[in-house]
Each structure stands twice: as structure tokens, then as C-alpha cells.
């Protein structure tokens, strides 16, 4: 027993020292194409690539850790990681606890998805079962606006909500357009977008503890860089087929470095194609 306690205390020491030099990013790992686990069991997606790019530019050593969505803010505060990068929209409510960076994805209307063939009167939704992921802006919207006369069902994980929609357990699913788009496209016509988009919450940004202003400064500087040279727009285009949102006129005056990088990437791509 004594030995065990000792190991535990030692482990605690070891990890406290460790956490200081590495910046840890908390993500959900179940929200394609933002962040997900690929078939190799590794984290992948838009935010994983963008996070790595930001750290490279800010000259920080970073790693991603997976954390469930519903405890992602408390565990940031508890210090399990230093940054939330999990498709989190900026809202007034969240701003009370979390310090947000500049956005890296613009405010995106939420959409309703339903089984194909179902008809809805969106001016007067009544008696419907409507789903969303818990602790999201969509969940807040449903609770505030559509609770009367409808049944709201909240899910712990986004894929559960999709599975329940596909199984017919809910009539409508309200979620980010960027998340639903691949679901609708990949469902073979079984799941379709219905009704108008709903604008809830602001853009997507990194979440940090309010006292970590130095880290936020570094992240914002790196974000400004990737916005300016078009890297972020390219990533958004690659993953969401949208944009460009951020590149300004200065895009034409690209830096030598980024041009060289692009040429290198193109060469690699050509080589890959030749191989095939």
C-alpha cells in the first residue's frame, strides 16, 4: 500500500513537471471532419492539422489529447490540457469561463437533417422529436426555442445523434452544417437537409484558460499568419470545400517561404500521381 501511494505521488510529480513544457490540446476525436480518429487509430482532421501548423509557427511543442465533449471545458479548467480545439463556437456564455482566440472558422449556420421524404412546417414545429449533441450551441437553442410542444433529445456524442436519426428515433437533428454535410453526402440519399439554416453562436476558436494570456498571444499571432498567407483558407477548402474566408489582397504578395513550400507540395503531389 505504501509503495503504491509513493508511486502515485511520484507520478503526480512527474506529470506536473511534464505538462509545463508541452502545450496540450484537448479535442473530442469524434467530430469529422473537424477532429476524428482515422482507420489507423490516430487523430486526424482539420483541427489536428491546423493545430500542428499553429504550433510549428509559434515554435511550441504540442500534443493532442482526447476528452469527451461534455467535460471538455471543466477539464481545461482543471488543467488536463491547455487549449480546447474541438469545433467550439464562441458564445457569450462560454466567454464567462473560457478565453477564446481569434476565430479560425467563420460563424456557420446550423442545419436540420431528417430522413428523406419527411415533411416539416418550420414556422410551427409541434410534436416532433428533435435531437442535438448535449452542451452544444444547438442544444441551447433547442432548449430555449423549441422545447414547448416538442421532445428534445440530447446526445453525449455526435455520432450517436446521427445513428439515432438514421434509425428513426428522432425526426430532426440540429447540428453544425460542417458536421452534417459529409453525413448527408455519405448517407446515399437516406439523410437530407431540411428547412432553413439557423445562425447560433459565433465563429469557431481556440479556448484557453483566462490567465494564459501569453499562450493566447502566440496562438493569435500564428493564426494571423496562416490567415494572411492563405494556409488556413486552403485547409478549409480541403476539408469543408468552402471559402476562401480570410486571405486578403496581400495574398498575391505571398512570402517567398510560403511560395517555396507550395512548390514543394506540388512537386510531391506530382510524384505521388506518377507513382500511381
Amino acid at each position: 500500500m505504501k509503495k503504491l501511494l509513493l508511486t502515485m505521488v511520484l507520478a503526480a510529480f512527474a506529470t506536473t513537471g511534464f505538462a509545463a513544457d508541452k502545450v496540450r490540446f484537448g479535442t473530442e476525436g469524434a467530430y469529422a471532419p473537424w477532429n476524428f480518429m482515422d482507420d489507423n487509430g490516430k487523430l486526424a482532421g482539420f483541427e489536428i492539422e491546423l493545430g500542428a501548423e499553429l504550433c510549428r509557427r509559434a515554435k511550441l511543442e504540442c500534443e493532442f489529447v482526447v476528452n469527451e465533449w461534455d467535460s471538455i471545458i471543466p477539464n481545461l479548467m482543471a488543467g488536463n490540457y491547455d487549449v480546447i480545439m474541438a469545433g467550439m463556437s464562441v458564445t457569450e456564455k462560454r466567454k464567462e469561463t473560457v478565453m477564446f482566440s481569434d476565430e479560425y472558422y467563420p460563424a456557420d449556420p446550423s442545419r436540420y437533417a431528417a430522413a428523406s421524404g419527411d415533411k416539416f412546417d418550420f414556422d410551427n414545429l409541434k410534436g416532433k422529436k428533435i435531437g442535438a449533441q448535449g452542451a452544444t450551441v444547438q442544444a441551447g437553442y433547442l432548449e430555449a426555442n423549441l422545447k414547448e410542444g416538442n421532445t428534445i433529445k440530447l446526445y453525449e456524442k455526435p455520432d450517436q445523434s446521427v445513428a439515432d436519426l438514421a434509425a428513426g428515433n428522432i425526426d430532426l437533428l440540429l447540428a453544425d452544417d460542417s458536421f452534417l454535410k459529409p453525413v448527408v453526402d455519405g448517407s446515399g440519399g437516406n439523410i437530407v437537409f431540411v428547412g432553413p439554416g439557423v445562425q447560433i453562436g459565433g465563429g469557431v476558436a481556440l479556448g484557453m484558460r483566462p490567465k494564459d494570456t501569453e499562450l493566447a498571444g502566440k496562438m493569435n499571432a500564428a493564426l494571423a499568419e496562416v490567415k494572411k498567407d492563405g494556409t488556413l483558407d486552403n485547409m478549409i477548402k480541403e476539408f469543408f470545400k468552402k471559402g476562401p474566408f480570410y486571405a486578403t489582397e496581400e495574398k498575391s504578395a505571398m512570402t517567398m517561404e510560403s511560395l517555396l513550400k507550395k512548390i514543394n507540395a506540388l512537386e510531391m503531389r506530382v510524384k505521388e500521381l506518377e507513382k500511381k
Binding site: 469529422a32 480518429m37 482515422d38 482507420d39 486526424a44 455520432d159 438514421a166 453525413v183 455519405g186
Partner: peptide, 15 residues
């Protein structure tokens, strides 16, 4: 087992 509709994330399959 979670459904996947994004080819980029691996095999596309329902729940």
C-alpha cells in the same frame, strides 16, 4: 461501431 460517412476517416459504414 459509430457510423462513419466520411471516406477520409476510413471505411464508410452505418451504425
Amino acid at each position: 461501431g459509430a457510423p462513419n460517412y466520411l471516406a477520409r476517416a476510413g471505411m464508410v459504414h452505418p451504425d
